[in-house]
Amino acid sequence: MVNTYLYAIVPLLYLLCTVLYLLHVLFKVERVGRIATIMTALGLTVHGAAFIARWLESYQLGMGHLPIRGPYECLTFSAMMLVAFYLAIEIKIRTRAFGVFILPVAFLLMVFATLSSRVSKQIVAMPEVLQGNYINYHLSSCFIGYAAFAVSCVASILFLIKRDGGDAHTAKTTLPSRETLDEISYRMIAIGFVMYSILIVTGMFRSKLIWGSYWQWDQVQTWSLIAWLVYAVLLHGRFTWKWSGTLTAILSIIGFLFSIISFLVGAGFLFASGHYPITGKF
């Protein structure tokens, strides 16, 4: 299987990128930073190639589904989205220091996915409820949303750590300014919120088909709604009361914790739920 070889290379590349970003931040060598960016782009390309290879191989095996089902595919897809968001941020705001915090997360997700004995790497046949394009929209919006919220959470933690009056983002090798971190956090929440809205409503349609009603107060549905509500509070506060800074950073972290709970419930690690979209058990 080509995809497993390619997926095995990806964590090594992300580890290398993490080390390069760290060296860049510690020794402030511009060339190392540039190499780190190139390696991250290469890592993302290999990751994308692995994703496409797995997709094609699933068709060769007669199963034919977008590889975002099952714990292995979910974790690797989330890591890919995380790195894609990071690269977009790096290009947009021209800061590399953020990579020191995002790349290790992507690396750990990939290591867990590829090395954990609890995660099967096999391409498995999906039950009827997890087939079709409709579930692709549901699951892809889910993991793009998680990745966006994860980046927002990291930006919020850095915002809380970074002190006022520190070196602003003029120095590319240090952390971005608090204002930039706040802006990154907001933009990622905006993307994540749209994705989460798609996730919840597409889930409602599936719920109607499976259980006969749009809303079941199922554990996964409710935890996702709770995370959505927390982000809704944050966005309303930000738009109307011009909330920013510490309060939005704390809310962003809380919102991410709830979305993680929803993920863990969906993966069958926490609470009993009527559906496990990630593990494919219904």
Partner: peptide
């Protein structure tokens, strides 16, 4: 709503 849902679930 958030608090009630958390306490319920």
């Amino acid at each position: 709503a958030t608090l009630i849902f958390i306490l319920q679930i």
